[in-house]
């Protein structure tokens, strides 16, 4: 298909990936500089929520529910995340509530996509396969890491041994690697696989 003719949702996916990269780089730099990088996690949670929501909005833009309630929904969730970061989980600490909420929403998006697309798509068509791979990546990563982030505050409070903590974060890293590989595969399918003509 070529990169210039990519559908809108893929440009949002690129923005999401750039956000991931920037966050990783800045977080590492802050950590090396011995500066608390937790505020960055709050910002990252909000931005990734926006981008993934916009990504799925592109897929479901014809749905009446999305047409009517997308912006109020975004405003409400943004407000909730902001309230959480200001009053419930301060910026210098872990935002388990917000992260868990956003992950549950991402899981819901992925599950909804699969139920909605089932029987309607054709997996031999690059676009359909690609979007299914993105949804799979989002579903698997967020489902797998949901419990880790839900209990992240407890992990940091020293309730677990250092080995157990690093073991769990390694599981998260592994899932994140799978997530990134699936996204890479999805983009490759969309950009390089030719559309097949069929029914």
């Amino acid at each position: 298909m070529g990169i210039r003719r990519l559908p809108g949702e893929f440009w949002i996916l690129f923005a999401f990936l750039i956000n991931e990269l920037l966050t990783e780089v800045i977080a590492a730099w802050l950590s090396d500089s011995r500066i608390n990088n937790m505020p960055l996690l709050h910002l990252y949670t909000l931005v990734s929520f926006w981008l993934i929501s916009f990504f799925f909005r592109e897929l479901f833009r014809e749905k009446e529910l999305v047409k009517q309630y997308f912006w109020p929904y975004m405003a409400l969730l943004t407000l909730l995340l902001a309230i959480n970061s200001i009053w419930l989980e301060p910026l210098d600490g872990f935002n388990s509530n917000a992260k868990a909420l956003v992950q549950v929403l991402f899981i819901s998006y992925g599950v909804y996509y699969m139920f909605d697309a089932f029987g309607r798509i054709d997996l031999l068509q690059p676009h359909d396969l690609s979007i299914s791979l993105v949804s799979t990546a989002i579903l698997i990563y967020n489902a797998g890491s949901l419990f880790i982030f839900m209990f992240a505050k407890l992990l940091n409070n020293g309730l677990l041994s250092r080995e157990s903590q690093s073991g769990l974060w390694m599981v998260n890293s592994l899932l994140y690697l799978v997530f990134q590989l699936l996204l890479l595969l999805a983009i490759w399918v969309q950009v390089f696989k030719a559309t097949k003509s069929s029914s």
């Binding site: 699969m114 489902a143 769990l168």
Partner: peptide, 27 residues
């Protein structure tokens, strides 16, 4: 807590994989 998190992660992953497998195979 470790057990809870591990079981939680495993159950969620199992559910996600089951859904994904069902989706791709049936589709």
């Amino acid at each position: 807590i470790l057990l809870l998190i591990t079981v939680g992660v495993l159950i969620m992953l199992l559910l996600a994989f089951a859904l994904v497998a069902f989706f791709f195979l049936s589709q």
